[in-house]
Each structure stands twice: as structure tokens, then as C-alpha cells.
Amino acid sequence: MDTQSLKKASDTPNFYWTLFKSTFLISAFTVGGGFVIIPLLRAKYVDEYGWLDDKETLNLVSIAQSMPGIVAVNSAIILGYRMAGVRGALTGVSATILPPLITLSIISCFYDAFAHNEYVRYALKGMQCGATALIISVALDLLKKQCKKKLLLPILIILGTFIANLFFDVNIMLLVVIDGIIGLILMREAKYN
């Protein structure tokens, strides 16, 4: 890819402010998390400002998706880092986390005031069922995706981890470390990607 042809992002006048403002607004008004935020970030950085090229952005986002943490935050960190080093990454991450920090702090005050009201409890009970349905649906989709690959090892990891966590109360962090080591030793081939 020819990165020379791109204008250097950090040379843009008011670069950090523009980066902060656009990322802040996207994070403030996007409902639905990472997979909705990333296309919007891409549209801003690539199409509107021309700070990054399309192919590199895709590669960087795919790294962001596979790193631990939140996809939207990771993308803001890695894309910001690509555009303007650590300062760019700091700008990106603060613009991504500030809006939810403000919104949720305000909402949680309301929550404490209302949660014990009888009618609010009924509505929340209904919404808890909705949230349960959502997580069941996500779990089913993920299971289907893993089963479609027709590989034994991932299925064994799923079964082992599920049973160890649910029936034997094994600590989640410990399970994650064990599964990471299994992956490191046994699952480096491309078919597991």
C-alpha cells in the first residue's frame, strides 16, 4: 500500500481537536457497540478526512477485533496510533470513553432513584427477559459459528470451559489462561483462525 500518497494526518490544522470531536460525537450517538461504531469511524477517517487508506484501516481493525478489550476502544486506539502515535491513540481513546462515562453516570443516578418503584420494577423485569433473550441469541449464533467449522478442539474447549465454569465454579480468569495456553500450543494453524 502506498502510504506516501496520503497526506500526513497529524499535519492537518487542528488535527487533535478534529479527531477528538469526530470520535466523541460518534461514540456519543451510536447505539449498539463496536460493530456499529467501526464503520462510522472508517467513514470519518478514510472517506471524509483522508487520514488513512481503506485497506490498511481494514487490517488495523481486524487486529483491534482480535485483541483483548472492547472492539470500538481498541479500534480508536490503533487507528489513532497509526495516525499520530501515542498522542493520537490517547486522543482516540479518551474521545471514545468520555461520552458513555458521562451518559451512564447520569442514568445511574436515575436508576437508583427509580429502581425500587413498583412499576419501574415490572418494566425492568420485562427488560431483563429481553436482555436474557438477547444473550441467548448471541450465544446460539456463536455456537453455530464454531460448530460449522467442524473442528474438534474448539468444541472440546467450549464444553470443558462451560462445564468447569457452571458446575465446578472454576475461576473464569484461570479458565481463560488455560484455554489461551491450549491455543498457543495446539491451535496455531490457519484453519483455527
Binding site: 482480535s66 436474557t132 456463536l142 464454531q146 467450549i158 462451560f162 465454569n165 491455543g183 498457543l184 483455527y192
Partner: peptide
């Protein structure tokens, strides 16, 4: 190396989300 670790973690995440789903 990092790919390998992540390949092991992805199924683990599926299992953990299923377990959380059970308590929900």
C-alpha cells in the same frame, strides 16, 4: 503466536457467554 492464543480464547468466550446466559 498471538493468533494461536486468540484461537484458543475464542471458543472459551463462547462457553463463558453461554454460562452467563444460564444465570440470566
Amino acid at each position: 503466536i498471538i493468533r494461536g492464543i486468540l484461537n484458543g480464547l475464542r471458543p472459551a468466550v463462547v462457553a463463558l457467554i453461554c454460562a452467563a446466559g444460564m444465570s440470566f
